[in-house]
C-alpha cells in the first residue's frame, strides 16, 4: 500500500501512549472458552476476476467486539459484507472456502438468506433510515419476519430504542418521520432497527464515519453496552475507535489477514512489522 501520509491519517492513527483498552480486559475474563460465533476457513472472494480476499482463516468470538482495521481497499468491508451476503447485490462475485456463522456455512447452497440476515444485522456507514416514522423503522423487521405476536411489537420497539439509547430522545415523537432526526440519532435508530430483528450478530461498517465526535462517543458507548448480548464485528478507519471498543483486532492488508489478536496486544506489541507500520501511521 502506497497511500500518502495525509494529515488526517496521522491524527486518527496516533494512539496516545496511555490509551486504555476497556474492552480488552473483559474479553480475557469472560470470553475465554466460549465457542466462536463466526469461523472463517480458507475464505477467498472475487469481484469478477479480481481477487479481493485471500485465503482468510480466523474466528470471531461470541459476545465480544471484534474490530477489523486496515488501509482503504484492503478488503475489510468486503469481508464484512460477505458475512450477511450483501455482496450478492454486485453481479459476478464468487466465494470459496468456508464462512461459518452459528454453525452454518453462509455460502452453502440452500441457505435461507432471509433467516440468515435476520440473525445477522448490519449497520452501515451512513445512517440509512427508511423514510417512514421512527416507530415503523424499528417495527418493520420483526413484523415482516413475524418474529413475535403483533401485540408485542410496541414493547419490542420500546426495548430496542432503549437498548440503542434513543428512547428518551424520541419517545414523544415515535410517529414523526425518522428523517427529521439528527445524523447521530438516525444512526442509533439504524442500530435499534437492526436490534428489532433480534439478531445474534451485528455487523458495523464504519458506523461513525459520518458522525460528529459527540455522536461518535454515544455510538461507541452503545457498542460497549451491546456486546454483552451480541457478537459485534466492526470495520473502522479510526484506530482509536478500534482501541476503545474492541476486544479483538484484525489487521487486513491487500485482502490478507496480516495479524489478529487481542486489541491491547495489536496496538502495543504487534508481532508483524506491517501492523506496526500501519498503527503508528507510517502508511494507510
Amino acid at each position: 500500500m502506497t497511500a500518502p501520509h495525509g494529515p488526517d491519517a496521522r491524527i486518527t492513527s496516533a494512539i496516545p501512549p496511555r490509551t486504555v483498552f476497556p474492552a480488552a480486559e473483559d474479553f480475557r475474563s469472560t470470553h475465554g472458552d466460549e465457542a466462536p460465533c463466526i469461523t472463517v476457513r480458507n475464505f477467498s472472494f472475487w469481484y469478477g476476476t479480481h481477487q479481493v480476499l485471500h485465503d482468510l482463516t480466523f474466528s470471531v468470538p461470541q459476545r465480544a467486539v471484534t474490530a477489523v482495521i486496515g488501509p482503504s481497499g484492503c478488503g475489510k468491508s468486503t469481508f464484512l459484507r460477505s458475512i450477511n451476503r450483501m455482496n450478492d447485490l454486485i453481479p459476478e462475485t464468487r466465494a470459496t472456502g468456508e464462512l461459518i456463522v452459528e454453525g452454518r456455512n453462509v455460502y452453502e447452497r440452500g441457505l435461507d438468506l432471509v433467516a440468515h440476515r435476520q440473525r445477522v444485522g448490519m449497520v452501515f456507514q451512513r445512517p440509512n433510515v427508511f423514510p417512514k416514522s421512527i416507530y415503523q423503522n424499528v417495527a418493520y423487521g420483526p413484523t415482516l419476519n413475524a418474529l413475535i405476536p403483533k401485540a408485542d411489537v410496541p414493547d419490542l420497539v420500546e426495548d430496542c430504542l432503549r437498548r440503542a439509547a434513543l428512547w428518551d430522545e424520541v419517545k414523544d415523537r415515535l410517529h414523526s418521520p425518522a428523517t427529521g432526526l439528527s445524523g447521530g440519532q438516525q444512526q442509533r435508530l439504524c442500530i435499534a432497527r437492526a436490534l428489532g430483528n433480534q439478531p445474534s450478530t451485528l455487523l458495523m461498517d464504519e458506523p461513525c464515519s459520518a458522525l460528529d465526535p459527540g455522536a461518535t462517543a454515544k455510538v461507541e458507548e452503545l457498542i460497549l453496552e451491546l456486546k454483552r448480548d451480541y457478537t459485534i464485528v466492526i470495520v473502522t478507519h479510526n484506530m482509536q475507535q478500534a482501541a476503545r471498543v474492541s476486544s479483538l483486532t484484525g489487521f487486513f492488508e491487500s485482502g490478507v489477514l496480516v495479524e489478529m489478536g487481542p486489541t491491547r496486544q495489536i496496538f502495543t506489541a504487534p508481532t508483524h512489522e506491517r501492523t506496526e507500520a500501519y498503527i503508528t501511521g507510517r502508511f494507510g
Binding site: 450483501m86 435476520q118 440509512n128 423514510p131 423487521g141 415482516l144 432497527r193
Partner: peptide, 22 residues
C-alpha cells in the same frame, strides 16, 4: 439511494418486498 435498498435487504426483506415497500 442504494443504501436504502441495502438497509431493507440487510433486515431480511426479500427482494420483491424491498422493491415494493421500500
Amino acid at each position: 439511494p442504494v443504501s436504502l435498498r441495502e438497509a431493507a435487504l440487510a433486515l431480511g426483506y426479500p427482494r420483491w418486498r424491498t422493491s415494493l415497500t421500500i
